[in-house]
Design a protein around this nucleic acid. Structure first.
Length: 564
RNA sequence: CGGGGUGUAGCUCAGCCCGGUUAGAGCGCUUGCCUUGGGCGCAAGAGGCCGGAGGUUCGAAUCCUCUCACCCCGACCA
């Protein structure tokens, strides 16, 4: 492509709305423009990179036996009612004129096809995938392409006879995903994850560590443990036994509101303090007890509570339910379900609120003094806590979720009646898995991981062009000649090149543009080199410059590109 | 959905408190000249319903009310 003819609207200034590097670079490098919140128009430079990512995905999906579909984005609303997903909050976008919705994922449509045509065990297993635009009712789109209302996703679905076969499909996908992200040049890791509203029995996320990522993970650099904070655990010690008393004793604690105040006032370690938070699930109160300042992890709590929405109780409700304000609430005398964090299992000598303002109770033995306490892991791990597996300190990091694989099980096959007859003529339910990859996120991760002050540094596998030929001065006939020669030679050698042949743009401008656009190899055609019959190759990532004779430039570039 | 912020030229912003000629700058764009190894220089231009509606006023980008859009923090996130 010749830059003089290309639509490539690069900009020098950083657009005001972009706060993270990948977003800024996508706008500055003329890759996309925002149409409305969470919706972007992808321009040629962006789409080229996406196509390269999608091609890698296709190859790896085909390698595990995937068959590519193209399913409708417009779905009948009734199909989503059938699986109970129509009214998941912030999930589905619908259209006003008809009872149709825009598909946020495709379990339903896959299920519809499967329920019609999967009839026999001989029809299984199947792996079906597509790469397609998805729509989602995102309450707050942000971070550029990382969280949009419209985005491109590779979604695949496995249909199996047995749970063992599902494991095979799942593992095949995990392997394919590793290949895909490795080929894309990304440094990624895999974490255990929460299945959330997708349902199912297990899931893992493929993550890229990124300062501006929206997910948080706990990871151990010692043994490789890694988990989304939604489920991450640590080897932190239990609260254990304390200063036991025959029965709880009332302690006057005037004006003491926080755990820190309480620890200081009573001169006791945080481990002796049991903090109470009250949630309302449905209409019922639930008291959640954690050690000291341990934070309640609402994802874990949700899993512990089971189905149903819940929220923290407001101050008036607290007072009505317990007779005290936040800071003086405790398990003894609390009328409702009590969930205590696992760290509190078997603990005694605890101090907690007395459900009376300005009073606490000491010497609490949960087992002895409170009936029916459920012990669940509901705390959020903190940076530096020991790894549960190897004891090394855990690190908490931000990350971008690139892919998510789920063992769905029978949730959708039950709802949509996807069944087959086995060898004995018995009707059996199909076991499903579903697997997603965010295509734009691959690009965003590449940019987050690989850029410098001057612009993008494309991983070779995703680069829209392999090489960027800069004709320093188009008014110089020799340069024009040599630039065209090398451009054609590159094309002949199968190297996809961009040729900056703009006549009205100064050399500095072209160099800045080339660095911003970030193709792996720059081929600089200027008087300096040409005096000696040479061109200059610049490796974008390292800044290394290599002089080569004009006639050898193309083959040298090809060599460099394939080495990247 | 709660909290905060911003809407003025294609982009980045000033002007707004404290109302008063014809609304500004830089970048970008057009034309001419110049320059050609790091967003080059000179000159002349084009470009605006000051997000929208209503109000106050002799007079509104500026004050008031409503509304829309976008951004940020939080909630939420198959």
């Amino acid at each position: 492509m010749r830059v003089s003819k290309a639509f490539l609207p690069t900009v020098k200034e950083i657009p005001a709305d972009a706060t993270i590097p990948s977003h800024q670079l996508m706008l500055r490098a003329g890759m996309m423009r925002q149409l409305t919140a969470g919706v972007y128009a992808y321009l040629p430079m962006m789409y080229k990179a996406m196509m390269k990512a999608m091609q890698i995905i296709r190859e790896e999906m085909n390698a595990i036996g995937g068959q590519e579909f193209h399913l409708p984005a417009l779905n009948p609303e009734s199909l989503w009612v059938q699986t109970g997903r129509r009214n998941i909050p912030n999930f589905i976008l619908s259209i006003k004129e008809r009872d149709l919705v825009l598909a946020p994922t495709h379990e339903e449509v896959i299920g519809w096809i499967a329920s019609m045509h999967i009839q026999s065990y001989k029809d299984l297993p199947q792996t079906w995938y597509q790469i397609q635009t998805k729509f989602r009712n995102e309450p707050r789109p942000r971070s550029g392409v990382l969280r949009g209302r419209q985005f491109t996703m590779k979604d695949s679905y496995s249909l199996d006879r047995t749970w063992e076969d599902l494991d095979k499909s799942y593992d095949a996908h995990a392997e394919a995903y590793r290949n895909i992200f490795t080929r894309c040049g990304l440094k990624f890791f895999v974490v255990g994850a929460s299945s959330g509203a997708m349902g199912g029995t297990g899931s893992q996320e493929f993550m890229v560590e990124a300062e501006h990522g929206e997910d948080t993970v706990g990871m151990c650099d010692g043994c490789g443990y890694a988990a989304n904070m939604e489920i991450a655990t640590s080897g932190i010690s239990p609260a254990g036994k304390g200063n036991d008393k025959p029965k709880p004793v009332e302690i006057q604690t005037p004006g003491v509101k926080t755990i820190d105040d309480l620890a200081a006032f009573l001169k006791v370690p945080h481990e002796r303090l049991a903090k109470s938070r009250v949630y309302i699930q449905g209409k019922k109160p639930v008291l959640v007890l954690t050690v000291g300042n341990d934070q309640v992890n609402e994802s874990k709590l949700g899993a512990a509570l089971g189905n149903g929405e819940f929220h923290a109780a407001d101050p008036e409700t607290l007072l009505r339910l317990t007779g005290a304000d936040a800071g003086s609430i405790g398990p003894i005398g609390f009328n409702g379900r009590i969930i205590a964090d696992k760290r509190l299992e078997g603990a005694s000598g605890l101090i907690s609120g007395a459900n009376k303002n300005d009073y606490h109770l000491g010497g609490i033995d949960l087992l002895r003094d409170v009936q029916g306490v459920e012990y669940k892991d509901v705390r959020t791990i903190e940076n530096g806590e020991p790894c549960a597996t190897c004891g090394k300190p855990l690190r908490i990091a931000n990350a971008i979720e690139l892919g998510h694989i789920f063992k769905l099980g029978t949730k959708y096959s039950d709802a949509l009646n996807i069944r087959y007859l086995d060898e004995n003529g018995q009707s059996q339910v199909v076991i499903m898995g579903s697997y997603g990859i965010g295509v734009e996120r691959i690009i965003a991760c590449a940019l987050e991981q690989s850029h410098d002050a001057n612009g993008i540094i494309w991983p070779a596998a995703l680069a829209p062009y392999d090489a960027h030929v800069v004709a320093v001065n188009m008014n110089n006939k020799e340069i024009v000649l040599a630039a065209n020669q090398v451009y054609n030679a590159l094309k002949a050698a199968g190297v996809v090149a961009l040729l900056d042949d703009r006549a009205t743009v100064s050399p500095g401008f072209k160099f800045k543009d080339a660095d911003l656009l970030g193709m792996p190899i720059q081929v600089i055609v200027g008087e300096k080199g040409l005096k000696n019959g040479q061109l200059e190759l610049k490796i974008r990532r390292t800044g290394e410059r290599i002089m080569v004779p004009v006639s050898e430039a193309a083959s040298k570039v090809k060599e460099l590109v394939s080495a990247l």
